[in-house]
């Protein structure tokens, strides 16, 4: 479904990604772990099409289609979703209105009419229940004054609404207490299907107890230095990242 070949990317002429290869098939969950500054968030941003990063080499394909020169909004329409580590506050625009706009823009791009208001309300109700989101929450301004946990829950709510093919969750577990983590993880698990894929970007093994990955990759210095099954995450938790750094240095 998502195929990344020898991807190199720069920010301000500094190379951050130095040749990433990764294939994610439908129905799979991949975890990408690694120390700070290894390029995890950059990889997430580049997949979603952030133009602040310059792809200098390699390619990203979604269902066989090269995403080069595809704008972030078109990528979203094609089924890429990024849950942000730091969601942006948009005062004056409610969560509901924001989702209406996002969904209808995506429909417009596909040549569909706006979703009827009744269907929209039903969808919002259904998905907000999934994430145990209060009705009042939906009329608040997007992310404005939200706690860390509320912001992350809201990101997953958006994912639920947009039903992406490939969802990248960037540090979705950071800043969550155990209850919020459980709700978010259970939401993601319910959204998982044989037709979509999830990429979890995380520092810690904790999230992976709740969303169990099929594969774990370790990113270090802009490259995937090790891949394995879910047991790799446990190994990392135990030993930290230093042994990998040494291993790759050799």
């Amino acid at each position: 479904m998502l195929k990344i070949n020898d991807l190199h990317a720069n920010v301000d002429d500094k190379e951050i990604l130095k040749g990433i290869n990764l294939e994610v098939k439908a129905g799979e969950v991949h975890a990408i772990m690694g120390p700070n500054g290894s390029g995890k968030s950059t990889l997430a941003s580049v997949i979603a099409g952030n133009e602040n990063f310059e792809v200098t080499q390699g390619s990203i394909e979604l269902s066989g289609e090269d995403l080069e020169d595809v704008s972030p909004e078109e990528r979203a329409h094609k089924g890429v979703f990024l849950s942000f580590q730091y969601p942006v506050e948009i005062p004056g625009v409610s969560v509901t209105n924001f989702m209406k706009t996002a969904i209808n823009e995506s429909r417009k791009a596909k040549g569909l009419e706006d979703m009827p208001a009744k269907d929209m309300l039903k969808l919002i109700r259904e998905k907000s229940e999934l994430l145990e989101i209060d009705r009042k929450f939906l009329s608040r301004s997007l992310n404005e004054g939200f706690s860390g946990g509320e912001k992350k829950r809201n990101e997953i709510f958006q994912m639920a609404m947009l039903e992406p093919k490939v969802a990248i969750l960037d540090e979705t577990d950071s800043g969550l207490d155990i209850d919020a983590l459980r709700i978010v993880a259970s939401g993601v698990n319910k959204l998982k299907s044989k037709d979509n894929a999830v990429i979890l970007i995380t520092h810690y093994q904790r999230l992976l107890e709740y969303i169990v990955p099929d594969y774990v990759h370790v990113l270090h210095n802009g490259k995937i230095v090790k891949s394995g099954g879910k047991e790799l995450a446990l190994e990392l938790e135990e030993k930290g990242y230093d042994w990998l750094k040494q291993e790759t240095a050799v």
Partner: peptide
């Protein structure tokens, strides 16, 4: 912020407008 909105499928022009609106909203 612009990237955030675009990544949700909102085209750049509308995303810019939404941000300007949010800016004036207070």
């Amino acid at each position: 912020a612009l990237f955030y909105l675009q990544s949700r499928g909102i085209p750049q022009k509308e995303a810019r407008a939404l941000l300007m609106y949010a800016f004036a909203n207070n």
